[in-house]
Amino acid sequence: MIVQRRAVTAALAAAALLLAAGCSSDGGSSPGGGGSTTAGGASSGVSSGASPSGRTAERTPPAKGTVKVVRTVAEGLKSPWGLAPLPDGGLLVSSRDDGTVVRVDEKTGRKTELGKVSGVSPAGEGGLLGIALSPDYASDHMIYAYFTSASDNRIVRMLYDEHKPAGEQLGAPDTIFKGIPKGYIHNGGRIAFGPDGMLYAGTGESGRRGLAQDKKSLGGKILRMTPEGEPAPSNPFPDSPVYSYGHRNVQGLAWDGKERLFASEFGQDTWDELNAVKPGGNYGWPDAEGRSDDSRYQNPIAQWHTDDASPSGIAYVDGVIWMAGLKGQRLWRIPLNGTKASADPQAFLTGTYGRLRTVAAAGGDKLWLVTSNTDGRGKPKSGDDRILELEVK
């Protein structure tokens, strides 16, 4: 299941852990479409779970914010999914259906194809999904990718050689981790390196609900591993890459300034979730969707009816989680006080750019936002896909 690699260094073994979690259908519809009630019983399309005002040592952002679309960076993208900003400028974008990685010049919008990732088998919500840069990218120029193969979902790494001709710049994929369950739906796919230098991956339960509660399965989990694909030191379950479980379909991962992990998660008929992830935490699926009175399960810090969100990527900027909504076709702002929402979530860009897939910090008060106007079954919808630059507060 896990491709064995060299032992991790003592420096990695000493790396500190800290917090996150989050999943509704990736496609344009979900079975129930929302309409449930909040934990308090009142009918509502969104429920933040914000605590009453109280003293805290952490600075909380304003309850209300703003979003300004600065410009369209690039358009005409084909089924874009993952986004990785390069340290020397440029944005790498993965195409779910084409299985290619494209470099976008963030100043001119010019697109250059690096190459096609061999082994990608796109279907439904599967294909070439999340991408991330190696923590040592400056010296090793390695790109990590999560993709659906003919047999599973897996994580590979590839050398990016920009001195080669366009279309030939991507090296052969080296599989570091395999055996993640695949399905026509719920393949997860977001990967990111945490502040501890470890690689985190959000997986889906591939439509087989029982996998989420099975700690021996890789489906419906957040995984934590070394850059070589080994279970990370100090993981909550011995010799296992499982970091948290009880997830339906995790597609968003982000850390705050205190290295606490947050994750977005698709619900089914009632509640999408934003979670603060605890090592070893059980997030309830399929026994709980949204908040629960069962003490065995971690409750989300915010939840939405599935019509209003269907969340994919998230990003953290200055005390705020920004969350991209697919079916909801909007960008959500969730201000934080520690690991709680400090005010009700606020929606922006509702219906303006269609389905929103990926959001990434762009430095300062800026965000990159990627649209996803191809539905979960690979059929193009109106309009093309683009990258936007936003100014957020």
Rank of each mutant, 00 (worst) to 15 (best):
P345V: 02
G325C: 12
P311Y: 07
P335V: 02
D308N: 14
A324D: 11
D344W: 00
D307T: 15
D344E: 13
T306K: 12
K327P: 05
D307V: 11
G313H: 11
M323V: 11
K340T: 15
Y316V: 06
R330M: 06
D318A: 13
I321R: 02
P335M: 07
L331W: 02
G328P: 09
G325S: 14
V320W: 01
I321F: 06
H305Q: 15
G319P: 07
P311W: 05
V317L: 06
G319W: 06
I301G: 04
S342W: 00
G319R: 10
I321S: 03
Y316T: 12
N337M: 04
A324P: 05
D318K: 14
K340F: 02
W304P: 08
T306R: 11
K327I: 12
I334C: 08
A309R: 10
I321W: 05
Q303S: 13
H305E: 15
I321K: 04
I334V: 15
A315T: 14
Q303Y: 09
A309G: 07
D307S: 15
K340S: 12
G313K: 10
K327D: 12
I301H: 04
R330Y: 03
G328A: 11
G328I: 01
W322I: 04
S312T: 14
R330A: 13
D308A: 12
Y316Q: 11
M323Y: 01
I301K: 03
S310Q: 13
D344P: 00
I334Y: 00
G325W: 01
Y316R: 08
P335Y: 05
